[in-house]
Lab assay of single mutants.
Amino acid sequence: MFYPNSPQTSPQLTQIPYGQQYAMMQRQIQQPYHPFATTEPQARLYPYHYQGPIQQEQGGFITQQSTAASPQYVQMRVTPVDQSIMSGYPNQTANGSSSSSFNYNIHPQQQQQQQQQQQQLRHHAMPVGSVPLQDDRYRKQLIVNYLAPDVTSTDLHELFSRFGELDGARIIYDKQTNMSKGYGFVYFCHAEDAKEAVERMSGYEFHGKWLKVGYSTNPLNIVPSNSSPYVHAGSRGAAG
């Protein structure tokens, strides 16, 4: 039997160049792979992502010199942007860049009308829970959420009447099932009393439920100042 490094198959040491006398086997001759043993700084910083320098080929596509990437890492192929796409944008300079302001050559009167329309939209648009300043009635009506099913309009009136005089209180019921929808409205005579009720009743436990109280901004629920107070009856038909 002959071994790869046996004296019968191995040459004389004098015939082997210096430095390879003890590297006779194939696994010894093959050098191990060192990912950080390279002179390129990109490979030292990113050993798993770097795959060699990027070269520009004919046709405008950018390719990489090395083989496919590892399945664990996804390499994105980048193509140059066609400058003709950006030619339609206004205020574009000769080098292809555009300024931040756009001039669509709008007539001054049209621009003024658009600004007025935007101001009107901001004036009428009102986020949930906010209180408008032009109508004091919005500051007097509250919406009470997360009410228990057994709470009546009379219970709601008695709960909030300790903060001040009320114009009314009612629970909203479903017309088909005649069941409470879980929320109601309270109408105060003074805005200061309503503000105190919002601050003190939010998070209050009532009939096993934690109440959420806020201003009601729905104009359909506003009680006119010259109208008669609501009837605080315990029956659902009268309260709904």
Results as ranks from 00 to 15, higher is better:
Ser6Leu: 06
Ser6Pro: 10
Ser6Ala: 09
Gln8Phe: 05
Gln8Lys: 15
Thr9Gln: 14
Thr9Trp: 03
Ser10Ile: 06
Pro11Asn: 05
Gln12Tyr: 05
Ile16Tyr: 07
Ile16Gly: 11
Gln20Gly: 15
Gln21Leu: 02
Ala23Cys: 07
Gln26Gly: 15
Gln30Tyr: 13
Pro35Ile: 02
Pro35Lys: 15
Phe36Asn: 15
Ala37Lys: 15
Ala37Val: 13
Thr38Lys: 15
Thr38Gln: 11
Thr39Phe: 04
Thr39Val: 08
Gln42Lys: 14
Ala43Val: 04
Ala43Gln: 10
Arg44Thr: 03
Arg44Ala: 04
His49Trp: 03
Gln51Phe: 03
Gln51Arg: 13
Pro53Trp: 03
Pro53Lys: 15
Gln55Lys: 14
Gln55Cys: 08
Glu57Met: 15
Glu57Asp: 07
Gln58Asn: 10
Gly60Ala: 10
Phe61Cys: 15
Phe61Leu: 13
Phe61Lys: 15
Thr63Lys: 14
Gln64Val: 03
Gln64Ser: 07
Gln65His: 09
Ser66Val: 05
Thr67Arg: 15
Thr67Ile: 09
Ala69Trp: 02
Ala69Lys: 15
Met76Val: 04
Val78Gly: 15
Thr79Phe: 03
Thr79Asp: 09
Pro80Gly: 15
Pro80Ala: 07
Val81Phe: 06
Asp82Cys: 12
Ser84Asn: 11
Ile85His: 12
Ile85Phe: 10
Ser87Ala: 07
Gly88Gln: 13
Pro90Glu: 14
Asn91Cys: 10
Gln92Ser: 09
Gln92Tyr: 10
Thr93Ala: 11
Ala94Gly: 09
Gly96Ser: 07
Ser97Trp: 09
Ser98Phe: 12
Ser99His: 11
Ser100Tyr: 12
Phe102Glu: 06
Phe102Leu: 10
Phe102Ala: 09
Tyr104Leu: 09
Tyr104Pro: 08
Asn105Glu: 05
His107Phe: 08
Gln109Pro: 07
Gln110Gly: 08
Gln110Phe: 12
Gln111Phe: 09
Gln115Asn: 12
Gln116Pro: 08
Gln118Val: 12
Leu121Met: 11
Arg122Asn: 06
Arg122Trp: 13
His124Arg: 13
Val128Cys: 12
Pro132Leu: 11
Asp136Ala: 06
Lys140Cys: 04
Gln141Ser: 00
Leu142Gln: 00
Leu142Phe: 00
Asn145Met: 02
Ala148Tyr: 01
Ala148His: 12
Ala148Ile: 01
Pro149Phe: 15
Thr152Tyr: 05
Ser153Glu: 13
Thr154Cys: 14
Thr154Leu: 02
Asp155Thr: 14
Leu156Glu: 00
Leu156Phe: 02
His157Leu: 15
Phe160His: 00
Phe163His: 03
Gly164Pro: 00
Gly168Gln: 01
Ala169His: 00
Ile171Asn: 00
Gln176Tyr: 15
Lys181Phe: 01
Tyr183Met: 02
Tyr187Thr: 01
Phe188Val: 00
Cys189Met: 05
Cys189Ser: 12
Ala191Cys: 13
Lys195Gln: 12
Ala197Tyr: 00
Arg200Leu: 10
Ser202Thr: 14
Ser202Tyr: 14
Ser202Arg: 06
Gly203Cys: 12
Gly203Gln: 02
Tyr204Ser: 11
Tyr204Ile: 15
Glu205Gly: 12
Phe206Gly: 01
His207Asn: 13
Gly208Glu: 03
Gly208Thr: 02
Gly214Glu: 03
Ser216Glu: 01
Asn218Leu: 01
Asn218Val: 00
Ile222Phe: 07
Val223Gly: 03
Val223Arg: 11
Pro224Asn: 03
Ser225Cys: 15
Ser225Tyr: 10
Ser225Thr: 13
Ser227Asp: 05
Ser227Phe: 14
Pro229Asn: 09
Tyr230Trp: 03
Tyr230Ile: 06
Val231Cys: 10
His232Arg: 08
Ser235Met: 15
Arg236Thr: 05
Gly237Arg: 11
Gly240Gln: 04
Gly240Val: 06
